[in-house]
């Protein structure tokens, strides 16, 4: 197991956001975390990247006990917003974020920047300021930043919200390609048709994992082959 959450709980000001989370993520898989907004998805991600620390339980990322500064070397993260410097060119954005990783030497960094720009088809717009980019271009550049240092684990917060179907397909093709290379991809989403593209899914509801299994298996649990039903069932129980 590459990533392991063990009995992880987290509260903010007495309100429990995550309750005894147990999760494992493997190499070469696309792992989806799905849940309505407020379910605790972002908190889960923030725990994994070390932005906040857990009240209870342990999180292991490869050989590191999170939070660990060194663990960040193998993490790539694409936030929900584009999180780019609008007054810089696409290339300068990549060079800046790339400069934060020791393992990328100058010549190597330049080479990688060229590579990822080609990958997301932005080579021609590399010198343009990001402020002049379209929404789709920004999203692609944002992905390029996350891929720049060839991370072992790629975390994507709602990666394809608000982008056109063509680009969406392209981005997912890229995820499958990365998976083939043995990487772990963690996707959070609240969109069902995106969730079913993952290999395995964890259903997060009110801070608890209500189900975690392969997508096919999850779908087979329901009458109409829809993940919504699993949530609805859970919701019904609680009321």
């Amino acid at each position: 197991m590459l990533i392991e959450f063990k009995d992880v709980s987290k509260s903010f000001k007495k309100q429990q956001v995550l309750k005894e989370i147990n999760l494992q993520m493997k190499e070469d898989e696309i792992f989806g975390i799905i849940g309505p907004s407020g379910a605790g998805k972002t908190t889960l991600i923030r725990l994994l990247i070390g932005a906040i620390s857990a009240d209870e339980g342990k999180i292991r990322l490869s050989d590191y006990q999170v939070p660990d500064l060194k663990a960040l070397n193998i993490l790539g993260y694409m936030p929900q917003n584009d999180a780019l410097y609008n007054d810089l060119s696409g290339e300068d954005n990549l060079l800046f974020f790339g400069g934060m990783y020791q393992q990328l030497k100058k010549a190597e960094l330049k080479h990688r920047v060229k590579e990822v720009l080609e990958l997301v088809e932005l080579s021609e717009d590399a010198v343009k300021k990001v402020i002049h980019y379209s929404g789709g271009m920004k999203k692609r550049l944002s992905l390029a930043v996350a891929l720049l240092h060839s991370p072992q684990v790629l975390i994507l917060d709602e990666p394809t919200v608000g982008i056109d179907p063509l680009l969406r397909k392209k981005i997912w093709d890229e995820f499958y390609e990365l998976k083939k290379q043995g990487k772990t991809i963690i996707v959070t989403t609240h969109v069902m048709d995106e969730a079913i593209k993952c290999d395995r899914l964890a259903l997060l509801y009110n801070g608890s994992i209500i189900a975690c299994d392969e997508v096919e298996a999850l779908l087979n649990r329901t009458k109409n082959h829809s993940i919504e039903e699993l949530f609805l069932a859970q919701g019904g129980k609680q009321v």
Partner: peptide
């Protein structure tokens, strides 16, 4: 607000 700080803080910068 545009989350670049969040992104910066997920790199191994001190």
């Amino acid at each position: 607000t545009n989350q670049t700080m969040e992104r910066l803080m997920i790199t191994p910068v001190k």
